[in-house]
Amino acid sequence: MAMKGGGFEKNSQASSEVPTSSLADIAFLLLIFFMVTTVFQADRDRPIEWPEAEAAEKIDEKQKNILNLWMEGDGTVFINDQPYPMEDVSTVVAPLYADSERALVISIRGDRDVPYLYMDLLQKELVEAGVVRVVFAAQLEQSMQRERR
């Protein structure tokens, strides 16, 4: 029996297509890489009622240069998930401020119903620590809401 075509037309064993089976693995690898390396803010949110402000603007500073300072309704101060007595705030903030080369912005996240007495004490502590840039964090108030009040 003679071979068809004398054996010359036999198909090549090598595939003519680029192997795409590993593309999915690459994509998933990238997906997992980004999911793992994405870091959100270090401290957890405290349960506070946010004050509202119409003129609230975005803080123009890198995330790492923003220190969140929480003040709950009863006047307790939280920095990086830890409660601190009021008189210790300046000693906690001062080294952080020095480390950031005076670029640190303090975001005061106070409960809307906290008596102003505590806010004033907090500001005095920050002045003592040498902090200059402070933001009173607030939720953006819609003008519709304002008209209803």
Partner: peptide, 17 residues
């Protein structure tokens, strides 16, 4: 779609000690 929530607030400048 990932947006990092930027804080909003009213900025003030505290006096130097």
């Amino acid at each position: 779609t990932t947006t990092f929530p930027k804080d909003k607030g009213l900025a003030v400048v505290l006096p130097e000690p």
